[in-house]
Amino acid sequence: MSVNLESHEPLIVAFCCNWCSYAGADLAGTSRMSYPTNVRIVRVPCSSRVNPSFIIRAFQRGADGVLIAGCHPGDCHYHSGNYYTRRRFTVLKRMLEYMGIEPERFQVRWISGSEGAKFAGVMNEITQEIKALGPNRKLRDVR
């Protein structure tokens, strides 16, 4: 896939937990808070369902950024899931950095079901950050 740097619109995959962040995304919608179209949400029951291999796969298939969003620590619908998320992805982030991926491309955020404005804000913010980095070339499959 050839990438035109001038008009490059980044593609961002966001894994959102059903109970907090997906609800936050819905609230952003109900409140008509706009954010860029670059973000695509995958609904998962809990952020702890997200396997690091899903992130690698997204980067391989051409995603320019990946976000995992879950309930605030302490507020997990399943009590402790987001603690696992936090630990797993601290390690993965280090590994991705080691592989040469800019740290901004992979982010973990806590967004509750009542934080529609925060959801829209985070989407705006990371889209800008990743746009500034340009396309992901490091892990993208040569296709």
């Binding site: 998962v44 029951p45 809990c46 702890s48 369902r49 997200v50 396997n51 690091p52 619908h77 399943y78 402790s80 899931g81 696992y84 797993r88």
Partner: peptide, 9 residues
Amino acid sequence: QGCGACTVA
């Protein structure tokens, strides 16, 4: 309850 934490572990 279907959180899926085990699937990653």
